[in-house]
Design a protein around this nucleic acid. Structure first.
Lengths: 142, 142
DNA sequence: ATAATTCCTCTAGCTACTAGAGCTTCAAGA
DNA sequence: TCTTGAAGCTCTAGTAGCTAGAGGAATTAT
C-alpha cells in the first residue's frame, strides 16, 4: 500500500494534483486508512502513471478521461483510442506551425537595431504595427 | 470617436476582453458618453492594436504591460524592449523543441497497429508506459 | 415614437493546477 | 507507551486570460 506521498514521489505528480484528479473523477477514490488517509495499490500507481504520461504528451484532461474510461472497457474498439491520439497529433502539428511563424517573426524583431531610446525604438514600432510583419502570424482586421 | 464595438471590430479583440484589459490597467479607462458608454480615440485604437499584436506574438499580459509602460516613457532605453523580446524568443525556442519531441512520440504512437479491442491496444500500452518511448519527452521517476 | 441593437455592471465559469490555514494521523525513537 | 515531527486531511481561494450570462440602460435607425 502506498500513501499519497509515495504515489507522488513515484509518479512525479504533486499531492494536491492527485487529490484534484480524484475530485475530477480521473482516478477512483482511493481506499482510506482507519485515520482517513488515502491508501493506494500498485494498480492505483499504474493508473496515475498513465495519466502522468498522457499529460506529458500534452493531452487534455478531457481526452485522458476518455482514454481512462476506454481502458476500463477492454471490449471497446481500439480505434477510439487511435482517433484521440490522431486528433491530438493534428493539434500539435498546428501549434508547431504557428510557433514556427512566431519564432521567425520574433527573430526578425529581436534583430532590429537598438535606436537608443523608446521614442525611436524599432522594436516598439514592429510590435505596434502588424503591417510591418513579414510573416502572416495572425492579422488585425482593418 | 469609436464605441467599444467599433474598437472590437477593428482590432479583433472581443468586447469583454477590452473591458478586461481596462480593468487590468493595460489600457487607460476610456472617456464616457453622457450615457456612460466608452468612447475611444484613434490613439485608443492604436494602443489596443499594439496589445493585440503583441498577444498574437504570444507575449504575456505582464510582458505587454511592461512594454506599454515603456512606450509611454520615450526617454527610457530601447534596450529594455529588446530584452523582453529576446526573453520571449527564448521561451518560444524552448517550446518548439519540446513540441517537436512530442510530435515525434505521438507520430510513433499514432502509427501503432490497431489491435482490435482495447484489451490489447498498443496505443493504450504506449500511453501507459513511458519506458516504451523513444523520445525522452519527460520522465516519470522510478 | 418605437423597436432593434448595443452598451453597462456584476457575478461566475473555464483549464489545470497551486498555495495556505487549521487541524488530525502516522511512524519511529526513547 | 509516550512523544514528536513529518505527513496527511478538508476547505477556500488564487493563478492566466479570458468568456458567458443576467438584468437593465443607452443609442441608433426607421
Amino acid at each position: 500500500m502506498y500513501s499519497i506521498g509515495d504515489l507522488s514521489k513515484r509518479t512525479g505528480v504533486k499531492i494536491p494534483t492527485i487529490r484534484y484528479y480524484e475530485q475530477m473523477g480521473l482516478i477512483a477514490a482511493a481506499d482510506r486508512s482507519r485515520g482517513n488517509q488515502r491508501r493506494y495499490t500498485k494498480d492505483g500507481l499504474a493508473r496515475l502513471s498513465f495519466i502522468r504520461h498522457a499529460r506529458d504528451l500534452g493531452l487534455s484532461l478531457a481526452d485522458i478521461h476518455e482514454l481512462v474510461d476506454l481502458s476500463h472497457a477492454p471490449d471497446r474498439p481500439c480505434a477510439e483510442a487511435h482517433s484521440i491520439t490522431a486528433r491530438h497529433l493534428e493539434s500539435i502539428n498546428a501549434k508547431l506551425q504557428r510557433l514556427r511563424n512566431l519564432q521567425r517573426e520574433l527573430k526578425r524583431i529581436a534583430a532590429l537595431p537598438d535606436d537608443g531610446t523608446i521614442g525611436a525604438c524599432s522594436v516598439i514600432q514592429a510590435l505596434a504595427d502588424h503591417a510591418l510583419c513579414e510573416t502572416d502570424h495572425k492579422p488585425i482586421k482593418a
